[in-house]
Amino acid sequence: MQPPAPDAPILFFDSGLGGLTVLGPTRALLPRAPVVYAADYAGLPYGEKSEAELAARVPALLGRLVERYQPRIVVIACNTASTIALAHVRAALDVPIVGTVPAIKPAALLTQSGVIGVLGTVATVRQPYVDDLSARFAADKTVLRHGSPGLVTAAEAKLRGEPVDPAVIARAISGLRDQPRGGALDVIVLACTHFPLLADELEAAAGPDVQFIDGADGIARRIAHLTEGQDWPAEAPSGLAVFTASPERPPPPLTALLPFGIDRIETI
């Protein structure tokens, strides 16, 4: 296989803006990488869709995006899409694929109480993939799960400059705390890339005795490893954000994307 051209981008894919939390640490490691950030606003929220729908939708959409932008690597920066459709995407596309999975393994190493919370979308927390991660890496721990679709909406609103409803944050934390052994919870896995956008609010609601963990830094290191030795442009090019068209949800203001090195928006 020929090495990619220097201007071949890294394609980040998410249902919305949550994947920016993966793009950020990747930018820090690979500052000259060309970037296309794709958000499926027409399909948001993924957490409320069926497994069958996402298993069909995500590979088809990524196929269009790969054909259009010719990326060197695709990053599915979405836990829901990864836990449901990652194998389907890898079977369909002839390009390296990096997925996003809940950080249960590092959480199991962090916990002192033996009680871990997994906060994700409704679709993610019910996946057998999470069962498998829990069995492999946290078999001697209590792993509590809670699906919070309201946090996705709150994170999108926050990036638009809108206020975050404290009740949404409180419900997400109580959804873990109110379960048996929830009072001993000391580590929460943010199993949706949207949720680190609400880190300040979640940490304030959970209190100082709870640590939060997500997989963004590890994903960035994986991207850097897989592209090691490849050529990049001499200077960082401007990043592009692509949104699938949604009549209910226009793209966010460009000011929300500029801190991530994105200064162009397209709708497809």
Rank of each mutant, 00 (worst) to 15 (best):
I10A: 10
L11S: 09
G16D: 13
G16M: 12
A28D: 15
A33Q: 13
P34K: 08
P34V: 12
V36R: 07
D40M: 09
Y46D: 06
Y46H: 05
S50A: 07
V58Q: 01
P59E: 06
P59G: 04
A60H: 09
A60S: 09
L65G: 05
V74C: 04
N79E: 04
A81V: 10
I84H: 00
A85W: 00
A92V: 02
D94Q: 09
I97E: 03
V98S: 00
G99F: 05
P102N: 01
A103V: 02
K105H: 00
L110A: 05
G117R: 00
Y129N: 01
D131H: 05
L133D: 09
A135S: 01
R136W: 10
G147E: 09
L159G: 10
R160T: 10
I169W: 12
S174R: 15
G182M: 15
A184C: 13
D186Y: 08
V189Q: 02
L190K: 05
E201A: 03
E201F: 02
L202H: 05
A206C: 05
Q211V: 06
F212E: 00
I213C: 03
I213L: 10
A216G: 09
A216D: 07
I223A: 05
A224M: 05
D231F: 14
A234D: 15
L240G: 08
F243G: 11
S246A: 13
P247K: 10
D263V: 06
